[in-house]
Amino acid sequence: MKSDGTTLRQFGANPTGMAIFDARGRYIITVMRSDRAKYASNALWRGSAEENEATANGTQTYFGTYSVNDQDRSVAIHVEGSSFPNWNGSDQKRFVAITGDQLTLTIRPPSGESVDVVWKRAK
């Protein structure tokens, strides 16, 4: 959700994904559209240009290290690798809110808005 209250559906109405933060300070986040079409070739490395574009536009994965700042309720992440190569080697900050089984990570990009990414605990 953006700061103006609109909902951004970058990964469709029913995205699927996982965010794992381990006790040793490592994380991986991956999210994708659940409605992506299968490749016609049924071969991992033989997608058409359109199929590859749909995969690139419908998937975000990144991993690295993190540390928690209790004072401002944030997590600092260092991106070691990302499906968006511009993030490789970058340091980013997410603000954290936990309510029951829900984790909200708020991203404040340079554009000045804020974006909430909501995760629900796996059961």
Rank of each mutant, 00 (worst) to 15 (best):
H78I: 00
L105T: 01
K93A: 08
N42I: 00
G81M: 15
A40Y: 02
S34H: 02
E80D: 11
L44G: 03
R94F: 00
R108E: 08
A54I: 13
N88L: 08
N86W: 06
D70E: 15
R94E: 11
F95I: 00
A37R: 14
D70M: 15
S90A: 10
G81T: 07
V96R: 09
D91A: 02
V75C: 10
N88E: 15
V31K: 01
R33M: 06
E53V: 05
G64C: 04
A43I: 15
T106E: 10
N69S: 14
P109N: 12
I98R: 05
L105F: 00
E53S: 07
Q60G: 00
T59D: 06
G64R: 02
R33V: 10
F95Y: 06
R108W: 04
T99W: 01
I98E: 07
A97P: 01
Y62K: 03
I98M: 06
S83W: 06
H78R: 05
A49T: 08
S74R: 14
E50D: 05
H78P: 00
T55L: 14
N88M: 10
S48G: 10
R33I: 05
Y39S: 07
V79M: 10
D70C: 12
F95P: 03
D101V: 12
S67W: 06
V96I: 13
N88C: 08
D70N: 15
A97F: 01
A49D: 15
T55W: 09
F63M: 15
I107A: 03
S34P: 05
G58L: 10
N88S: 07
I107C: 04
N86L: 09
A49C: 04
A37T: 15
R33G: 04
M32D: 04
Y62L: 10
Y62H: 09
I107W: 11
E80C: 00
L44W: 15
R108P: 06
Y39F: 14
R46T: 13
P109C: 09
A97V: 12
N86Q: 09
G89M: 03
T59Q: 09
N69G: 07
A40Q: 05
W87F: 08
S90G: 08
D35Y: 01
S48L: 13
D35W: 03
N42T: 04
N69I: 11
A97C: 11
